[in-house]
Structures are given as structure tokens and as C-alpha cells.
Measured scan of single mutants.
Amino acid sequence: IRVFLPNKQRTVVNVRNGMSLHDCLMKALKVRGLQPECCAVFRLLHEHKGKKARLDWNTDAASLIGEELQV
């Protein structure tokens, strides 16, 4: 999953079965001084340019493999 972060940063996270978005993104956020409780995560909708859909931090990350997200 490719993730666009604040301050023009980005990362790619690996996903294993059973992991939530929170689990996958925790380290990437922590390294940058961010906390999931203070952030929202969105899936970028490529079929609708510029649109995005808000996701819950408990979403199964395996269902988002190959997607691009924005925090």
C-alpha cells in the first residue's frame, strides 16, 4: 500500500493477513511524530479524479493491497 503522508512525505507499507490499517501504519506515523488518534486516513479514488473516501483505522489492510492512501 502506498501512503501519502503530511509534509509531502510518502511511504510504502507491507501488509500481512489480519493486519489493520492502524497496525500497518503505526511505525511510519510514529517515526514522523504523528499519532493515528490525531489523523484521518483516506483511500484515493482514481476513477473520480481528486476524490477520496475516509477509512476506519480498524479496516482490514489486506483489502487495500495495491491502493493508494492519504493520511
Rank of each mutant, 00 (worst) to 15 (best):
residue 49 K to A: 13
residue 27 K to E: 15
residue 27 K to A: 11
residue 65 I to G: 04
residue 14 N to Q: 15
residue 1 I to D: 03
residue 5 L to R: 08
residue 25 L to Y: 00
residue 13 V to G: 03
residue 58 N to W: 04
residue 16 R to E: 15
residue 1 I to C: 05
residue 19 M to E: 11
residue 48 H to R: 13
residue 4 F to I: 10
residue 42 F to Q: 01
residue 38 C to E: 15
residue 62 A to L: 08
residue 50 G to Q: 12
residue 66 G to L: 00
residue 56 D to M: 07
residue 40 A to C: 12
residue 63 S to K: 12
residue 21 L to H: 02
residue 10 R to L: 15
residue 58 N to V: 02
residue 15 V to H: 06
residue 6 P to W: 00
residue 67 E to C: 10
residue 5 L to G: 00
residue 36 P to R: 07
residue 8 K to G: 15
residue 27 K to S: 13
residue 61 A to L: 01
residue 56 D to Q: 07
residue 3 V to L: 07
residue 54 R to G: 06
residue 53 A to N: 10
residue 6 P to G: 04
residue 33 G to V: 04
residue 53 A to W: 08
residue 16 R to H: 11
residue 69 L to D: 05
residue 23 D to W: 05
residue 2 R to K: 13
residue 54 R to E: 15
residue 2 R to E: 10
residue 18 G to D: 04
residue 12 V to Y: 09
residue 64 L to F: 11
residue 34 L to N: 01
residue 4 F to Y: 12
residue 30 K to I: 12
residue 53 A to K: 09
residue 22 H to W: 12
residue 7 N to L: 00
residue 18 G to C: 06
residue 55 L to I: 13
residue 53 A to S: 11
residue 12 V to H: 06
residue 63 S to Q: 09
residue 41 V to A: 07
residue 42 F to M: 07
residue 53 A to Q: 14
residue 22 H to M: 13
residue 44 L to T: 14
residue 49 K to H: 08
residue 66 G to S: 00
residue 10 R to H: 14
residue 30 K to C: 12
residue 15 V to T: 03
residue 11 T to Y: 05
residue 27 K to V: 08
residue 30 K to S: 12
residue 37 E to V: 03
residue 62 A to F: 15
residue 26 M to V: 14
residue 10 R to A: 14
residue 8 K to P: 00
residue 48 H to K: 15
residue 17 N to P: 15
residue 16 R to S: 14
residue 11 T to H: 11
residue 60 D to G: 02
residue 14 N to Y: 09
residue 52 K to E: 15
residue 31 V to E: 13
residue 21 L to Q: 03
residue 11 T to K: 06
residue 43 R to G: 07
residue 57 W to S: 05
residue 31 V to A: 13
residue 36 P to F: 04
residue 28 A to Q: 06
residue 60 D to Q: 06
residue 42 F to E: 06
residue 33 G to A: 04
residue 40 A to Q: 15
residue 14 N to K: 11
residue 66 G to P: 03
residue 36 P to V: 08
residue 56 D to G: 07
residue 65 I to Q: 09
residue 45 L to E: 13
residue 26 M to D: 13
residue 65 I to K: 03
residue 23 D to P: 00
residue 56 D to C: 03
residue 62 A to M: 15
residue 17 N to A: 15
residue 5 L to E: 05
residue 6 P to K: 05
residue 50 G to T: 07
residue 61 A to E: 04
residue 69 L to F: 07
residue 8 K to Y: 02
residue 57 W to L: 00
residue 29 L to D: 06
residue 35 Q to R: 13
residue 7 N to P: 02
residue 71 V to I: 09
residue 66 G to V: 02
residue 21 L to N: 02
residue 5 L to N: 04
residue 67 E to K: 09
residue 60 D to E: 12
residue 9 Q to A: 08
residue 14 N to C: 08
residue 54 R to Q: 14
residue 50 G to H: 15
residue 30 K to W: 09
residue 65 I to E: 06
residue 20 S to N: 10
residue 44 L to S: 11
residue 28 A to T: 13
residue 20 S to A: 03
residue 41 V to H: 02
residue 4 F to V: 14
residue 29 L to M: 09
residue 35 Q to T: 14
residue 46 H to C: 10
residue 45 L to C: 15
residue 44 L to G: 08
residue 14 N to V: 10
residue 48 H to W: 06
residue 10 R to M: 13
residue 36 P to H: 04
residue 13 V to K: 04
residue 19 M to Q: 14
residue 33 G to C: 03
residue 21 L to V: 06
residue 45 L to S: 15
residue 50 G to A: 09
residue 29 L to T: 03
residue 66 G to D: 05
residue 4 F to Q: 10
residue 71 V to Y: 03
residue 69 L to S: 00
residue 18 G to H: 06
residue 45 L to I: 10
residue 43 R to T: 05
residue 3 V to R: 03
residue 30 K to F: 09
residue 35 Q to M: 13
residue 52 K to H: 07
residue 48 H to Y: 06
residue 23 D to L: 03
residue 70 Q to T: 11
residue 53 A to I: 10
residue 65 I to A: 14
residue 68 E to W: 00
residue 66 G to F: 01
residue 21 L to D: 00
residue 57 W to V: 06
residue 56 D to R: 05
residue 67 E to F: 03
residue 4 F to C: 13
residue 28 A to V: 14
residue 26 M to P: 03
residue 12 V to C: 13
residue 59 T to R: 03
residue 35 Q to P: 06
residue 50 G to M: 07
residue 35 Q to A: 13
residue 64 L to K: 01
residue 16 R to C: 10
residue 45 L to V: 15
residue 29 L to G: 02
residue 16 R to L: 09
residue 7 N to T: 01
residue 9 Q to E: 15
residue 9 Q to C: 05
residue 22 H to D: 02
residue 21 L to C: 04
residue 37 E to G: 09
residue 63 S to T: 11
residue 2 R to S: 14
residue 21 L to Y: 04
residue 28 A to F: 02
residue 65 I to L: 09
residue 11 T to V: 15
residue 14 N to H: 09
residue 42 F to N: 01
residue 25 L to G: 01
residue 56 D to T: 07
residue 37 E to I: 04
residue 43 R to P: 05
residue 19 M to D: 11
